[in-house]
Nucleic acid binder design. Structure first.
Length: 478
RNA sequence: GGCGUGAUGGCCGAGCGGUCAGGCAGAGGUCUGCAAAACCUCGUACAGCGGUUCAACUCCGCUUCACGCCUCCA
């Protein structure tokens, strides 16, 4: 790929939830971005709103690589939590057996959406010792305490900067209904569980610890696994906005409380996907899983297009009209790539792009490097489609020029991930199609338009679209 | 109540103090036997009211409406 490498040391800007500003970004070690992305809780199929976050993270890691950085990404699998435990008990199977199918489905869904795999997918169940060790550090630092029921809580009042990520002042926190049941175990309402003593709802999901049988709290999982694989300080931590508080706030407090070092350089959060103006969520029940949408005949890349057609920090309203529009838009891009490929005819790419393409290249890079502005990047892509088609139509694009533009578009797609997957391979035409085309060719030479149209209709019924151009008939599988 | 986000043309969706977002849909045109594709042209869009400014969709204030977080949630 020609463009690889020329972006080395590109200046990236990301909006940091911690500073609430767009800040310039550099990996701490100058080379490799270490990225922690909160993964799925594997008690059910993920929905398209969840995938908005995973696609945002995918665009992030692709952009980092496009910019010339290495990426080490960790995405955890949350398999210890109230819902996975409840599910496994209801199903009457061990926890690992209960979560396995949802983990498999999750990975299948990632492939459907052309989401690049992370380097590591650690599961909470495999990291309980690390979590216990971290809790011990917090106890030693006076930031945690053991309650009467042998649970361990984080002591928020002992960590003065608590609330700095979510920008919340918890001094006025009032006890809500949910909090009340634990209240007399905790010293303060804002305190949260690091270790939960076993209770009957946990069944046989329990681990031994210095404090007795029990299980880790949700937040400690990400701190422990993040630090294990990415170090005590790393570059980027992402998730949906609803993770900002309490989850990420707690993670930050636990991690910095244990190490005394800054935990994460940049926190990034993507906005919600809405349906009918409301957040799409499992608790509201207004969600579509990827499977639901595939069953309706939509393709992974069409959904991916819809999800990157809006900026990640802006709420996005999911509509079927938008998916239909995505389908048409993608067809136009595919058509362009085909024409370009034909024009290039295997020629080696020119060293320099045509001037118009070079300008679009600049625009594309500026867009994605500025806080992942994918809508603008798509606009640049369409500018390329328009200018390129125009140039080819006017015979102004040489084979080598077309090859160079093809390389450029392939470069764009390293970030967007829309073009190079989900397209049907060109296959040899079936015998009967070839015959009909030959018959049609003869009819056309005889200017027998009625017969020509009839054969075109027949081919269409068989699922082949024919177009007539200067070079003769072109056929495409519908 | 606290913190925060948003209101852009039929739909989706960027953006900036002063020449264009972009896509889809629609209208007209070029090309074509026709069709398709492609290209060209076409929309008095920036919630309302004030203010700042030579100039505001873009900055400030207020109003209205919508959405999110405030210990399940991507």
């Amino acid at each position: 790929m020609m463009i690889t490498g020329i972006h080395a040391r590109a200046t990236l800007h990301f909006f940091n939830s911690l500073t609430r500003r767009k800040d310039p970004f550099q990996p701490l070690d100058g080379q490799q971005a270490r990225l922690y992305t909160c993964g799925p809780t594997v008690y059910n199929f993920a929905h398209i709103g969840n995938f908005r976050a995973y696609i945002f993270e995918d665009v992030l890691r692709r952009t980092l690589r496009y910019a010339g950085y290495g990426v080490l990404q960790v995405m955890n699998l949350t398999d210890i939590d109230d819902k996975t435990i409840r599910g496994s008990r209801q199903a009457g199977v061990p926890l690992k057996a209960f979560t396995r199918p949802f983990i498999d489905a999750f990975f299948a869904d990632l492939r459907t959406l052309n989401i690049e795999p992370a380097e590591l997918y650690p599961a909470a169940t495999d990291h309980v010792p690390e979590m216990i060790a971290l809790i011990q550090r917090l106890l030693a630092n006076g930031l945690a305490y053991l309650s009467d029921d042998r649970s361990v809580y984080f002591k928020v009042s002992a960590f003065p900067s608590y609330g700095k990520l979510a920008h919340l002042d918890l001094s006025g926190l009032r006890a809500g209904a949910r909090v009340a049941q634990d209240e007399y175990e905790k010293e303060s309402v804002g305190d949260f569980a690091l270790w939960k003593a076993w209770d009957e709802n946990d069944g046989d999901v329990a681990w031994d610890s210095p404090w007795g049988r029990g299980r880790p709290g949700w937040h400690i999982e990400c701190s422990a696994m993040g630090m294990k694989y990415l170090g005590e300080s790393f570059d980027l931590h992402t998730g949906g906005v609803d993770n900002l508080f309490p989850h990420h706030e707690n993670e930050l407090a636990q991690s910095e409380g244990a190490t005394g070092k800054p935990f994460v350089q940049v926190w990034m959060h993507c906005a919600h996907l809405r349906v009918n103006g409301e957040k799409m969520s499992k608790s509201l029940g207004n969600f579509f899983t990827l499977r639901d949408l595939l069953a309706r005949g939509y393709a992974g890349r069409e959904l991916r297009y819809v999800l990157i057609n809006g900026h990640y920090r802006q709420a996005l309203n999911f509509t079927f009209d938008a998916v239909e529009a995505a389908r048409t838009s993608l067809a136009r891009i595919d058509e362009f790539v085909s024409r370009l490929t034909e024009t290039a005819a295997g020629a080696p790419p020119d060293a320099a792009l045509p001037a118009w393409a070079a300008e679009i290249h600049r625009q594309f890079d500026a867009s994605v490097f500025d806080d992942l502005n994918t809508p603008e990047a798509l606009a640049a892509l369409f500018a390329l489609v328009r200018e390129g088609n125009s140039a080819m139509q006017g015979g102004a694009l040489t084979a080598s020029g077309a090859a160079a533009v093809l390389d450029l578009i392939a470069g764009f797609d390293r970030v967007l991930g829309l073009i190079s997957f989900g397209r049907r391979d060109a296959r040899a035409l079936p015998q009967e199609v070839t015959q009909l085309l030959e018959g049609r060719q003869a009819a056309r030479q005889a200017k027998n338009w009625a017969e020509s149209d009839r054969l075109r209709d027949e081919l269409k019924r068989m699922g082949w679209e024919v177009r007539d151009g200067k070079e003769g008939q072109k056929v495409k599988k519908l």
